[in-house]
Design a protein around this nucleic acid. Sequence first.
RNA 1: GCCGACAUAGCUCAGCGGUAGAGCAGCUGUUUCGUAAACAGCAGGUCCUCGGUUCAAAUCCGAGUGUCGGCUCCA
Length: 626
Amino acid sequence: MILGSANDMADDTQAQAPAADDEVLEAPVRGSADELLDAGAQAPIDAMRHSTAHVMAEAVLALFPDARLGIGPAVENGFYYDFDLPRPLTPDDLAAIEARMAESVRADHPFVRREVGFDAGRATEAEAGQAFKVEILDDLARKAADTGEPMPPVTFYEHGPFRDLCKGPHVASTGKIGPFRLLSVAGAYWRGDEKRPMLQRIYGTVWETQEQLDQYLWRREEAKKRDHRRLGRELDLFSFHDVSPGSAFWHPKGQRLWRTLETAIREVQDRREYTEVSTPMVVSQRLWEASGHWALYKENMFLIESEGQTFSLKPMNCPESTIIYKTHLRSYRDLPLRLSEFGRLHRNERSGTLSGLTRVRQFIQDDGHIYVRPDQLADEIAALLGEVDEVYGWFGLRPELKFGTKPDKALGDPALWDRAEALIREALDRAGLPWTLKPKDGAFYAPKIDIHIEDALGRSWQTATIQVDLTMLPERFDLTYIDEAGQAVRPMAIHRAIYGSLERFIGILVEHFGGAFPLWLAPVQAVVIPIADRHAPAARELAAELRAAGVRFVEVDDSDSRMQNKIRLAQGQKVPYMLILGDREVEARSAAVRKRGAGKNDPQEVLPWSELAWRLGEEIREKRLG
RNA sequence: GCCGACAUAGCUCAGCGGUAGAGCAGCUGUUUCGUAAACAGCAGGUCCUCGGUUCAAAUCCGAGUGUCGGCUCCA
């Protein structure tokens, strides 16, 4: 069971995971009034971004005098401000707000800081009908009362007609605000609490120079072009349909990606002495009661009634792994016992959270459960980090490790936690890979290492996980092995996934490569292009020779299109190699090799078939990135 | 789940009360061609679904479904 794997793993990164259009907009830090007041304005650019939020609030208030203000911090690439408004905003409204903002910038109002006594500050907001601001102040007051500290003074920032409760800092005047653009409107719960009112959040971006703004908008457009949902359609990899929301239909070419990845990780797992298992997808409620899922995860499970019994589609593999463990009495000599499983999982995610391949209801996980003696744990973790390093190297992805330690709510003996954390730390250091600490971010039953990767656009995604389970599987399922002294002893369990969810991983790879997969991974590795019909038989011969050499996915374009059109099509499908055959090549049993992305003036090789087959075969075997 | 937007041919989109359109893709024919689009013809639609308003609905209104942007959730 990979708790927190695949979807869950992903879930942890939702805040960082960008929207499809590459928007990286972070939610405000949730919690205390202090944090709500912190505008996120640390760097100078942030001060300008936060100042732009003030100017936007001024514009909104001018258009909607009854608007109530939430908060408006700077975020990565821009800012937002939350408003309670009498009606939903339209794109026209955004244009009107932008126009108002431009006026305020032109007027060059100075930002003026005012400090007033708490009561006066509260009265000011109360008179203005700004209930959310009053709430923030009341929270501050309550906190001061609780800690016995004196009531803090309240600061306002004013510019022109606008005044806002704010810690600052700000730029000197509105004229210092650079080129900006309002981007979108979204719903956002007040203080991030779904029980509180939903406000309208306007996102915007602002930069020092027009060039920077243009560059940013260009990057958003580029990101859209490599959106895996778009490329999935254009490259005919997969599709989604309303008959099964949140579950991909894998087309032949997408399935080839899946197969290639599966074959590759199996090779690693065989080498590392995993044994592969497969467990049922439909599982009785009784098992989930034993594992604790019924109490804590039932909402996310698809249930099936049959003959008076309740079953569920498995959302995780872990409990069933223990059933296989328990089919034998295990000896200390059997450990580590590495059980791998390509489990097909179903999780009934809330409808609004689904998104392409990155947040789905059905996915396949390259799951693994490793049962170890305590003395084997450190070595095993080190080996798993080695797996991650090797596998991510195939794609040119640099794994970023995050070490999550004991959370406040945790099961098991604290001494065991300390020990497990020390072992993880040791293993991380031994691996020599950079890692960061995320205190209290462990699972409730175990500390963990989550693996994040950055795609080509620098966006961070969580994919893999390594979790050290001292309690849950071993205790709940009463796992034991017989030690040297003949005593029954508890093993430790490691939950791990390297790709995580294949769906998500493929989605990330599509975006990472922009659809231009390296040869070893490409669903169409080469297209043989006969110039005229008379070259088609030779083209088919070449294709067969390539397949025999391990280039599995070769196509022959023997349509009656002209060569130019065939090249254009193959280029659009991002096929790594176009092999062109005319009279000269057929005569010499060679092919003109046009590589993906080659321009008019790039030199082009003409290679004999045998050499071509050998070269491409080598490129595949070495998983060369090209 | 919540807020908002969107849903027209396989794809990208136009049409926004008065007989459903384009480009690309597809099919057929002609063409056999040297590095990113040969030419011509044909075919292709419950305008997401259900209900309502209207003489008349792709178009206006309501509900549902799905998708998108966010928020929330996320063992």
